[in-house]
């Protein structure tokens, strides 16, 4: 691939995936760092353009995840990749069964999951990846990812059930 073709391809990747990568990073880092990490991610893509697969989004997410993980390290400490949650409620129209899930309890339950559990759920629920794509982001086999997703989802339901049992009425909003 000559430099002209390479520039064209990176430009196409940028246009097609910039927003998705920015969201991926924003879910995991403070807003002030998003642009830098997105640029670093696409710079890696530029340097390794021959490695970027046709289905580029999971590959780009994997690179962004490595960039984030490195930036999250600090002197003398390990830090797990942390997934943020929305600070403000989002107005949505939900069917009755989903409305039964209290947002506060859901937030509490989310925070009780491990970082690994949050990661596998977020890759599907937030980043919109299929099981196969999410597995590629984490460098796992699809079957391994599916097992982890099932466990994480089950744990989330268990925590929600426990919270609902403990505080059935007062915490629920109309």
């Amino acid at each position: 691939m000559d430099d002209g073709d390479a520039a064209d391809r990176l430009t196409r990747l940028w246009v097609a995936n910039h927003e998705d990568v920015a969201r991926f990073v924003a879910r995991r880092l403070d807003a002030a760092l998003v642009d830098d990490v997105v640029s670093e991610t696409f710079l890696v893509a530029w340097r390794r353009l021959d490695d970027v697969p046709e289905d580029a989004r999971p590959w780009l997410f994997g690179v962004a995840r490595n960039v984030i993980a490195t930036r999250s390290r600090s002197e003398g400490r390990w830090r797990a990749l942390r997934l943020r949650i929305a600070r403000q409620p989002v107005e949505v129209t939900r069917p009755e069964d989903e409305a039964a899930i209290d947002r506060i309890e859901l937030e509490q339950a989310w925070l009780r999951l491990t970082a690994g559990e949050r990661e596998v759920i977020a890759l599907v629920a937030w980043d919109g990846l299929t099981t196969e794509q999410a597995a590629r982001v984490l460098g796992l086999r699809a079957s391994t990812f599916s097992v982890r997703l099932t466990r994480a989802r089950r744990h989330l339901v268990e925590v929600l059930d426990a919270l609902a049992t403990r505080q059935p009425t007062p915490s629920r909003r109309p």
Binding site: W110, I121, A125, W126, V157
Partner: peptide, 27 residues
Amino acid sequence: SPVMKAVVELDPARALRAPGSPNDPEL
């Protein structure tokens, strides 16, 4: 899963708009 659909609402980046343009200076 209803729970997974509910989790979508916790997404901190749902409202983020950051389309990439061929003219972006970062690119």
